[in-house]
Amino acid sequence: MKLQLNGIQKSYGSKQVLKDCTFTFEKGKIYGLLGRNGAGKTTLFNCLTDEVTPDGGSALILDEGGGRPLAPEQVGYVFSTPVLPDFLTGYEFLRFYMDVNRDKVSPDRTIDDYFDLVNIDKEDRHRLIKGYSHGMKNKVQMLLFIVARPPVILLDEPLTSFDVVVALEIKQLLRELRQDHVIIFSTHILQLATDLCDEIAVLSDGRLRQVDSQTLKSGDFEAEIIGMLKDEEHHD
């Protein structure tokens, strides 16, 4: 399976944020989406989830049956700021989500099995989400795509709110999940990209460019990325 982006464009007024985003992402790899602040990383994610309507271009899922437009239900999106119902406990919310997605839930896993995957303590499962830390809320967000198993997973700055131990747990979880998904996460932290990613896509001047994977673990990686981004015209 592949996710193919073809010439995605998006403008806000006179500012063209995405000019020609063309790229092919493959299942089984973790892709880092690098770009300066304001480069359009979140805008691109929003276009892929139908949060905003692109001005042009297309996103296709390619598999053995051919190509078809990417549908919102095929995308799991972990926001940088968690969006969850604070008036429910973690257990209540996950039970509700599993009921809604009962046709996708693995029959071999219980609610507690899912919580165990992300190491949320049993007593915390029955607390109101309102009292969760930012990191715990992000863990719950990640549980949603583990339950629904969408082919495409987008993560917007996913690890910046976690302490060292939790970040290591989430990294390992993503490595285990990548075989069945296209995983793309945006970050501006080069060390995180080199540590976790199989491939890097750089968003600069409204276009996506691929970094040679051979340089990902080399000493030339940082210099190459800086060279690709230093002329970025649209950044905060």
Rank of each mutant, 00 (worst) to 15 (best):
I189P: 11
E199W: 02
G206K: 08
F162P: 02
L155K: 00
Q172W: 01
S213L: 05
S133T: 08
K139A: 11
I189T: 03
K139F: 04
L155V: 05
S204T: 13
H181Q: 06
F162S: 08
E169Y: 06
R175C: 08
Q172T: 09
K171H: 05
M142F: 03
H188R: 15
R209Y: 12
K171N: 04
I184M: 07
H188E: 00
F162N: 08
I184W: 05
L196H: 04
V140D: 07
V140A: 10
K139Y: 04
I153G: 00
T187Y: 01
L154D: 01
D212I: 11
L177Y: 10
L196R: 04
G135P: 05
L174H: 01
V147N: 11
A193S: 06
N138D: 14
P158K: 00
Q191V: 06
C197K: 03
V211Y: 14
R178W: 01
L208V: 12
V140I: 15
V182C: 01
L196Q: 13
H181N: 13
L208C: 10
D198I: 00
K130M: 09
L192D: 06
V165T: 11
K139E: 15
L208K: 10
K217T: 02
E157L: 06
Q214F: 15
L168D: 13
L190N: 06
H188M: 01
K171D: 01
F145K: 05
Q141E: 11
E199R: 01
F162V: 10
L168N: 10
G206C: 09
A167F: 04
L143M: 15
L144Q: 09
Q172C: 04
L168V: 08
Q141W: 07
V202F: 13
S133L: 04
P151M: 12
I189Y: 11
L159Y: 01
L155F: 04
P150C: 07
A193R: 00
T187L: 02
L192H: 06
L203N: 13
S133F: 02
L203I: 11
L190S: 09
T215F: 12
S213I: 09
D163F: 06
P158G: 01
S186K: 00
K139C: 10
E176R: 07
L154Q: 07
T215M: 14
